[in-house]
Amino acid sequence: MSSATRSFTIRVPATSANIGPGFDVVGLSLSLWLTLSVTLSSGSSPIYVPPKITYTGEGADEVPLDAYKNLTTRVALYVLRCHDIPSFPSHLSIHCHNEIPFGRGLGSSGAAVIAGVLLANHVCNLNLPIERLLDFALMIERHPDNVTAALVGGFVGSYLRELDDDASAKASVPLSEVLPEYPADAGPEWGLDPPPPVPPHGIGHYVRFGWTDAVKAIAIIPRFELSTAKAREVLPQAYSRKDMVFNLQRLAVLTTALGQSPPDPELIYEAMKDRIHQPYRKSLIPGLPEVLALTPSSHPGLLGICLSGAGPTVLALATHNFERIAEDAKRIFKEANVDVDWKLLELGEGSKFEETA
């Protein structure tokens, strides 16, 4: 290996958003990972060599390997161009290994976006602070719950700051201007005029909540995809005051209750109930109402149960008895003709960067 070769890895966790009452507000990172192994060689040829992408793991048969089509590299290119760097360095190789299922409510797209922001930051040594990395991610994802948890890790609450008119306009440009669809013959010079929209500063803010080590997450993952767009289409445009107060009361309790030791099943189970999104998404996921009816009384060790993000994955928080909880949920789904897999997960760390050579 040449002394001019640089290598590093980026690891981004899966995430689960909403956690019952926290619709578009809270998220937590989970111990499944998208890992980028990046190699940058100086090369001796003056001819530009475009990025080479390889991919293994979840979604390997459907992810584009063209740097102008792949979500992670498109995000990275957007960040670079916002810093007047028109293209990737020559002789860049990226191997992606993904453990996060696509379209299941486990933050696969959020992880890809954060991976792209971090790729740009490290491949060209931009040295952006966490808050600025989040700004770039929010220009693409627009909802802070998943990307914030993926970036900083833990159990996180987040919001979009109210911006002045100028900053609000910059943060609200169409996604097609932030991540344009590159044509088949796109090259390093395509899409530079007009330049990409640079995000305003401080779009999103966040806080980490406590989380007791006794709580584990059982991800019950149906073997079908459900797009976030489709899951949002079934939601109403307005809610009653009664339903909003119902969720706010529970969210206020939940953000403290999950940090208490020992965790209180009765308190947490009730605090993870929701009236804002889960009732409307039940029609999209056969067997969901029956699975959500599992209780700490019927299944000791269970603390609470909810949709993970937009679904179809169900997230059960528990302290023990993991296999029985998961297998009973699996049986209920099977009775509704839905096959599932399940994984026992820990609360994940935030994204990690490591220089390897």
Rank of each mutant, 00 (worst) to 15 (best):
R81H: 11
R81D: 14
H83N: 15
D84N: 15
D84S: 15
I85M: 03
S87I: 02
P89K: 00
P89F: 00
S90P: 09
S90W: 04
S90A: 11
H91S: 02
I94W: 07
C96D: 00
H97C: 01
H97Y: 01
N98R: 01
N98L: 01
E99P: 06
I100S: 04
P101D: 05
F102G: 07
G103T: 13
R104H: 13
R104L: 05
G105P: 10
G105D: 07
L106W: 05
G110P: 11
G110H: 08
G110V: 01
A111D: 01
A112I: 07
A112V: 06
A112Y: 04
A112N: 02
A112F: 12
V113Q: 02
V113G: 08
V113D: 07
I114Q: 07
I114K: 03
A115I: 07
A115W: 02
G116I: 12
V117R: 11
V117L: 12
L118V: 13
L118A: 09
A120P: 09
A120K: 04
N121C: 11
H122R: 10
N125C: 01
N127M: 02
P129N: 01
P129A: 06
P129K: 06
I130T: 15
E131H: 14
E131V: 03
L134G: 03
L134P: 01
L134M: 13
D135R: 13
D135L: 06
D135C: 14
A137M: 10
A137Y: 07
A137F: 06
L138Q: 14
L138P: 13
L138T: 05
L138V: 10
L138M: 15
L138N: 15
M139W: 09
P144E: 04
N146Q: 03
N146E: 03
N146I: 05
V147W: 09
T148F: 09
T148A: 13
T148R: 04
T148G: 12
A150Q: 04
L151E: 09
